[in-house]
Amino acid sequence: MSYVGIIITFVFVENFILSRFLGLCPFIGVSRKMESAVGMGFAVIFVMAMASIITTLIYNYLLITFNITFLKTIVFILVIAALVQFVEMVIQKNSPPLYKALGIYLPLITTNCAVLGIAMIAVEKEFNVFESFVAGVSAGAGFMLSIVLMSALREKFETEWIPKPFRGMPIAFITAGLMALAFMAFDKALLKNLLG
């Protein structure tokens, strides 16, 4: 797959939230305000980019070499947890404004399926390190795209009347469903027409 192909695939065609349901918990939880959605989006892009590089490096050069690929789940999740912790420490020390913006979202990301998801998908698709990095950034961008769109919609809901049982999460799910329907316009046929 070409790099443009990877980007379009992960941002639109296989949008992590709307077509693969990865990272749905923060998507529903943190999409009430546009501001926090943007913050969460950047934090996810950042962590996913780092995580996809490191996990691919470890998988390709360590796990395969020692023939212990069956330990990948444990290794990946520990690496991701350590990475998030490390990133949090570095940001806190060196850039307090950035920490203020992203800090509260970082701990939430360890248990975000999207990060482990991209590591697993990179393994499954046999990406090399750079492909995996591009995939990580684009999947993060896809996540950000949908969470920001969602938050813009949910801010509008606050002024609208909604039947009581539907308030909050249910209407968010149904809206996400409609968004997923719209995103189906991005399919592989589009990729084929664009890239030949």
Binding site: M184, D187, K188, A189, L191, K192
Partner: peptide
């Protein structure tokens, strides 16, 4: 319906 054209491709 699903646009899973890629399987066919």
């Amino acid at each position: 319906v699903t646009g899973a054209t890629i399987t066919f491709t």
